[in-house]
């Protein structure tokens, strides 16, 4: 059974068809990459999966570990193990990074029937993970994403992923805005979390990321539908020739 199953997803925003029958199966232990031109519906797909208000399916179905997500609110889906690293992480003025992380982690733990971490235990764990992402303690004291640089925001997203240990992670353009060193840090952080029980979907425009996070499958999304799937070589083809050839062939 797939860990994440998207069946014939259709979605409209403001009466405009954005997703036109996306189907995708992601198994445990796999990494999938989704590429596609600007405006092809990649972020929309991620919001739809995460259960954002207004992104309800018109038609189709999505299953996480065999359980239908359609009736679940965004927070339930998250607690069930679905994680989205945002293309544009959102600022939360006055909300300290450490307290935010703790609330999030404890919500997930509670759902899993695990004991909530006490304050000290949590801080220790968070600092350990943060240091792997080169996130300084000082940054955890600041308000979530407020005044963070683009790269800092992305590292903080992956830190959250590491703390929450989701089943399925969708990383929406986590590589955009990263310098060479940060790209390596973030990729290492993601790779460290790959295991046989979870799965990762990376949305990207650049083959470069896929040198670091090597995918098992690459899919091309165009106009709200997957027009081609293949192995890592498909990303190289896009890099070389762009999307137009693929789109015309479809």
């Amino acid at each position: 059974m797939s860990l994440l199953e998207i069946k014939n997803a259709h979605l409209k925003l403001d009466d405009k068809n954005i997703l036109n029958g996306v189907s995708l199966s992601v198994n445990k232990g796999e990494v999938h990459a989704i590429m596609g031109p600007n405006g092809s519906g990649k972020s929309t797909l991620s919001y739809m999966l995460a259960g954002r208000d207004g992104y309800e399916l018109e038609e189709g179905e999505i299953l996480l570990d065999g359980i239908s997500l359609s009736e679940m609110e965004a927070d339930e889906r998250a607690r069930s193990g679905l994680f989205l690293a945002f293309q544009y992480p959102v600022e939360l003025p006055g909300v300290g990074g450490m307290s935010f992380l703790r609330e999030a982690v404890n919500s997930r733990r509670k759902f899993l029937g695990e004991e909530e971490l006490d304050h000290l235990g949590f801080v220790k764990e968070a600092r350990k993970e943060a240091s792997k992402m080169y996130v300084k303690d000082e940054m955890l004291k600041r308000a979530v994403n407020v005044g963070f640089s683009g790269g800092e925001k992305k590292r903080f997203e992956i830190l959250q992923m590491a703390m929450l240990k989701p089943k399925v992670s969708i990383l929406d353009e986590t590589d955009s805005g990263l310098d060479v060193d940060a790209l390596k840090i973030v990729s290492d952080g993601v790779n460290a979390q790959r295991n046989n029980d979870n799965a990762i979907v990376v949305i990207t425009h650049y083959q470069r990321l896929l040198d670091y996070i090597v995918p098992d499958f690459v899919h091309i999304l165009s106009d709200g539908i997957i027009i081609k799937s293949g192995g890592p070589e498909l990303a190289l083809e896009v890099e070389k020739n762009g999307y137009s050839g693929l789109i015309n062939a479809a």
Partner: peptide, 9 residues
């Protein structure tokens, strides 16, 4: 939405 996506109700 950002908070909900992290599991907060």
């Amino acid at each position: 939405f950002y908070c909900l996506q992290r599991g907060l109700d």
